[in-house]
Design a protein around this nucleic acid. Structure first.
Length: 423
RNA sequence: GGAGAAAUGGCCGAGUGGUCGAAGGCGCUCCCCUGCUAAGGGAGUAUGGGUCAAAAGCUCAUCGAGGGUUCAAAUCCCUCUUUCUCCGCCA
């Protein structure tokens, strides 16, 4: 959520900035509501004050044994008037809140301005794109040939966009998770957390998936719980309604969780293979930091995700998402895109974002400065490190040989009993 | 799932209709005293919002959450949530 103060004071500027991301602010409606709010709130509080004063004097009169019935007569209609005003105020505030909760974050000044995906800005590339003396297969063919990927059975068990991993591929998948967690906990200073995979609405409102993106989520109506679309939701919400001591900042969490996405609106996209599934695993990095540190933290966190790709020796590039491509809650996002030989393309494998105070304001995640004892909103960041399914795809495709055997990068061999190949 | 008990500020804990945003204690901060230490004395110490250019000030809200009764609710009523104890079931 944006700062309501800012919206009152700088509505035109905000409108302009949000237009860069393709969001239209209903300025007039907002301004009208705000005027009504101010008027209504002042009047309501005046009535509340009057009630409080009078109640107090009734109490005092009564304790002195004075007859209070004339006083009671005086306040007769006050109650109704007050109730009507309170209701009206609550109404306006609900409307305002709905609008505010539906407004995306302001893009940071360093975010490239653009209309869509093609305007994203490549920041750097790493690694060498592999060349093959044969025509490389895609991960579906490779996985099927290894008897390690089975989409048909998963479809029977559940439906489309699910997969079964078998044997060495399942093991490799697990090894990736283990490797990533070990890297971040042992070398990058993250604390591993295990979190719920079902969350309530407040958590999703906090990180920004709700109220706008309900259709992307799997919902369990009987309890009104949702399956998490990313570990970002439960992990960041650890900080909800908490005031963190300065000495505990930055706090860095890493979690491995499955992620569930309904992929509504993506029916035709990436229907083949493991790229876009309803259920996938991810290792997620989350940082809670002081506002002054958050852009350094974004660079650092992105580096941490890149390190995974580097150790796996997978070629990738870093892209700064343009204003139009930015996620709802994000002020700035770097995507990591790994090279997929079968597609001859870089494909997203990680997304690292600084949300500034946007999520923190929604979830009342704050910190107290030791010196001044002042309380302020903290800044939240997260990034995938990495999407495990897509990493598996990248390994299969980049490390295949002519016979469909898969080379295992050295950092993973220890997790796979020293094996150097699959198949 | 059943039965019972509970939820108050950083912590402990008092408070069953009025002057209570809340006694007292602990902790913490600052000051004084004490030639170290210990002890002692004093002051302060919740959060969010509105108003205001801003500060001060004024004001509103908040005692697990939401509703209700009342001129007035931490206190009475209803619903929900969570925690604890016992029973059942279960990994």
């Amino acid at each position: 959520m944006l700062d309501p103060q800012l919206i009152r004071q700088q509505l035109p500027e905000i409108t302009e900035k949000l237009a860069l991301r393709g969001f239209t602010v209903e300025q007039e409606q907002l301004a009208q509501l705000e005027t009504a709010r101010k008027q209504q709130q002042i009047e309501t509080e005046r009535l509340q004050n009057e009630r409080n004063q009078r109640s107090k004097s009734i109490g005092q009169a009564k304790s002195k044994g004075v007859d209070i019935s004339p006083l009671l007569a005086e306040v007769a209609e006050l109650g109704e008037q007050l109730k009507a005003n309170e209701t009206a105020l609550a109404n306006i505030q609900t409307q305002l809140n709905q609008i505010l909760m539906g407004m995306p974050n302001l893009p940071h000044e360093t975010v490239p301005i653009g209309q869509g995906e093609t305007d994203n800005q490549e920041i750097r590339r790493w690694g060498t794109i592999p060349t093959f003396s044969f025509s490389p297969k895609d991960h579906v063919d490779l996985g099927t040939q290894l008897n390690g990927l089975d989409f048909e059975t998963a479809t029977k068990i559940t439906g489309t966009r699910f997969v079964i991993l078998r044997g060495e591929l399942a093991r490799l998948h697990r090894a990736l998770i283990q490797f990533m967690l070990d890297l971040h906990t042992q070398h990058h200073g993250y604390t591993e957390v295990y979190v719920p995979y079902l969350v309530n609405q407040d958590s999703l409102l906090g990180t920004g998936q709700l109220p706008k993106f309900a259709e992307d989520l799997f919902h369990i109506p009987s309890q009104n719980y949702y399956l998490i679309p990313t570990a970002e939701v439960p992990v960041t919400n650890i900080a909800r309604e908490v005031i963190w001591a300065e000495e505990n900042l930055p706090t860095k969490f890493v979690a491995h969780t499955p992620c569930f996405r309904s992929e509504a609106g993506n029916y035709g996209k990436d229907t083949r293979g493991m790229i876009r599934q309803h259920q996938f695993e991810k290792v997620e990095l989350v940082q809670l930091v002081k506002p002054s540190e958050s852009y350094n933290a974004l660079e650092e966190l992105t580096q941490h995700a890149e390190t995974v790709l580097q150790r796996l020796e997978l070629p990738y590039r870093v892209v700064s998402l343009c204003t139009a491509d930015l996620g709802f809650s994000s002020a700035k996002t770097y995507d990591l895109e790994v090279w997929l030989p079968a597609q001859q393309k870089y494909r997203e494998i990680s997304s690292c974002s600084n949300f500034e105070a946007f999520q923190a304001r929604r979830m009342k995640a704050r910190w107290r400065e030791t010196r001044t004892q002042k309380i302020n909103l903290l800044h939240t960041l997260n990034g995938s490190s990495l999407a495990v399914g897509r990493t598996l795809v990248a390994l299969l495709e980049n490390y295949q040989d002519e016979n469909g055997r898969i080379f295992i990068p050295s950092v993973l061999q220890g997790y796979l009993g020293g094996n150097t190949h699959i198949g």
